[in-house]
Structures are given as structure tokens and as C-alpha cells.
Design a protein around this nucleic acid. Sequence first.
DNA 1: ACTATATGTGACTTTTTGGTCACATGTCAA
DNA 2: TTGACATGTGACCAAAAAGTCACATATAGT
Lengths: 115, 115
Amino acid sequence: MFNDDQVFKALGDPSRRFLLDLLFQRDGQTLSELEAELAMTRFGVMKHLRVLEDAGLVVTRRSGREKLHFLNPVPIRLIHDRWIDKYRERQVSALTDLKTSLESKQCQQSSKKKA
Amino acid sequence: MFNDDQVFKALGDPSRRFLLDLLFQRDGQTLSELEAELAMTRFGVMKHLRVLEDAGLVVTRRSGREKLHFLNPVPIRLIHDRWIDKYRERQVSALTDLKTSLESKQCQQSSKKKA
DNA sequence: ACTATATGTGACTTTTTGGTCACATGTCAA
DNA sequence: TTGACATGTGACCAAAAAGTCACATATAGT
């Protein structure tokens, strides 16, 4: 249904994530409205919106001479369910402390190496 | 703690996601082992691993002349919690049918707007 | 019809990134 | 120490992507 790679690529750019944030705050904004929020030309914004639309993250509707943009959460849910989730569940306990845990493990092991 | 942008960028490339898949299947693989699975030169794989490491998605440990690579789920959990989740929760009901729902909603709203 | 506004298109430049190459470093094991 | 193997580095090339520009189309309102 949705192409994983397109979705991940689309999410890979901060400007595009910001556009999704804007639509999350208020759905159905026009190109001009979105452009005003972004330090970039209208054409740049249009390109980003097209990438988001191709990835299925944004759906659009023409209304007269305006084009309204809506956030579509489905692709995000899909990559969440079939991809993010499995890595998230890899370590269930004490995830908050995992980073420091890893760091200390590295120290132990690098000193072990010296021996 | 982790840089969102680095994590998203790292996840944006299919080769890198494949590397994470490989480490998910079996953690602690060396560069050479990973290289064998990927139709790419060792140097290409090394670069990808470096991106993953910089993003914090992979942690490494030297063991003699080998470098072992481990999957670190923490950054994925973080982007999940602070970013993916909010879009995922946007529409709670009947998500499987949401795409068609959106399509019919488009018709409703374009007629509604006329009023 | 005319004009102002909103969006769309094709070609272009610049930057980033994926990928490669030759060479260097480091480590094990005889 | 010597050779084999595993990883690291710097420069390099090609492809993709971010961003801009001039121009085209379409619609609302007078």
C-alpha cells in the first residue's frame, strides 16, 4: 500500500517533518499558508509537499484555486507497526538507563581488552 | 541525548535499515560479516555503519582486531515516543479503513466548504 | 474581460550523499 | 619478525536531492 522507503526518505528531512508538525497543529492548510511559516521559497515548500504527498503522508484536496493539505497518519502507523516496533521491543527493561549501561559496558570491555 | 535529525536521516537509507535488520537477526557482527550480506564494497558498508553509529543506532566494541556491532534500540524508542506516536494517535478508530475514509471525507468536505 | 491571487512546470545551480579506490594502521599467529 | 587478516583514512566520482528562477495555468471577484 505504502512504500516504506518513500516514507522513511520523506521523514528524513527536517523541513518536511516541520511541515507535518504544522499540519498536525492545524490541518487543511494551503500552500501559501505553509510557505509563510518556512524560511524558504514557495517552490521549495511545494517540492517538499510533493514528496510528502508521494509518500502518502499528506493528502490534498482542491478547493477552488486553493489546495488544502491534510496529514495522513496511516503510513506512519504502518512503518511503526512493521518496523519501528520490533526494534523498540528489543530491550524491554530499564530502557531509560540503557545508554549509561552501554557506556559502562564499553569501559569494562575496553579495559578487558587491555588485559 | 540523541539527535532526531541524525536518526531520521540514518533510517532514510534502505541499506542502513537492512544493516539494522541484520543486527536484529544476530547482534554483535563484525564489519566483514555484514559486508558479506550486502552487495556493496566493504568501504560502503563501513560508511553506512558509521552513520548508524553517529546516530546512536549502533554501538560498537573492539575485540582484538575485530569490531563488533550491536543494535541500540534507544534512539528508535525516543523518536517513537516523542514524534511517531503523536501522528499515530491522530486517528484512533478504524485505521485500516482510514485511507478510503479519507477519500470519502474529501468529497464531504469539498461539498461542505461550498456551503 | 480584466486583474489579482494561488498553484503548477521545466530547466538550472549547489550541496549532500552513496559508493569506490588506493593506501595506512593495527592485530593475531606462526 | 613476517605474513595474513580486519579495520581505518583521505581523496575522489557520480548520482540524487535541496533550493531557486522565470514562466505558465487556473480561479475568484469586480
